[in-house]
Design a protein around this nucleic acid. Structure first.
Lengths: 162, 162
DNA sequence: TATTGTTATACTCTATAACTATA
DNA sequence: TATAGTTATAGAGTATAACAATA
């Protein structure tokens, strides 16, 4: 949930992957763009004295909107294994952003919820994410933004479902 | 260089990140699409009995096109630290895809090059990548593909240069 | 001194397998 | 038995710091 930024390529070597080689190299463009977007996300938070990864943000939003959900349900929604989720929740819980409550109805599950502090923090995080999104989309018109999101979605469904 | 696929989200919980929350959530769409594309890449290679990550493919192409380059130059081109590159090259060298030659002019550097076997393998890999790209772009017209790549590039330059 | 490659170390994300508690 | 959460373990990407060889 938050691989390090991987700085953008330095000097373009002969035959950089930028173009030429293959039909389109969408995969490569996607990776480069994502890397830049990730770096911008991190820089936005660092500049505000906050620390959060895009994955953590998504997780917190999910918990806020589905208070009481179980770790299994959350793991499924995030597309990760339940064991992968454990240390991530440990960290967020250690930061007092969320808590694991014992479910009264099913002793096996934990009911996840944001703490009051977590809710306040998430409101702050949301503002930062909005500023971040605004910046990375600053070169696109509203129509282009919609188009981009639509095209990404089309690609996503064409990629192997697995 | 090749983080595991991270399966696509399962059942949509209330308030999935899919829409609503923020202006556009381009970052989220980007991550999901990239994850799906990565999975398709892996599946394409696995189906052909080959194993390679997008990062390894990019590295091999760079070495093929810039035979003799140093590890520092390659690390810079890939945007990773030189120490990160070492185990990656170890692995590719162990697979006999590339070799580190001592540079005759500068004893500190290694001149990287593909092996004959590596060149043949890369030709095979290129065909698989083309098939993969064709599949993930199957839902887009040629014009849409161009548009997508252009818009991704625009986003990339808007994201913090860092 | 500065640079290159390597090693040691440390995170994080990812997974599988096995264990515990509960159903 | 089956499910939820945890732990143990392992592989890969990422980095920083220190070291040897070379410039």
């Amino acid at each position: 949930m938050g691989r390090p930024p991987a700085k953008s390529p330095g000097k373009p070597l002969a035959g950089s992957l930028d173009r030429g080689l293959l039909p389109s190299l969408l995969g490569y463009g996607l990776r480069r763009t994502q890397s830049a977007v990730f770096a911008d996300f991190a820089a936005t938070f660092a500049h505000a004295g906050e620390a959060l990864t895009p994955g953590e943000f998504g997780l917190l939003v999910l918990v806020e909107r589905n208070a009481g959900l179980s770790q299994m349900a959350l793991a499924r929604a995030l597309g990760i294994d339940r064991s992968t989720l454990v240390p991530i929740l440990d960290r967020l819980q250690a930061r007092d952003l969320l808590v694991r409550h014992r479910s009264p109805t099913d002793g096996r599950t934990h009911a996840l919820a944001l703490t009051p502090f977590g809710r306040k923090a998430l409101a702050r995080f949301g503002r930062l994410v909005r500023a971040h999104e605004k910046r990375i989309l600053s070169g696109l018109s509203a129509a282009e933004t919609r188009t981009l999101i639509e095209l990404l979605e089309k690609v996503r469904v064409s990629a192997r479902p697995l």
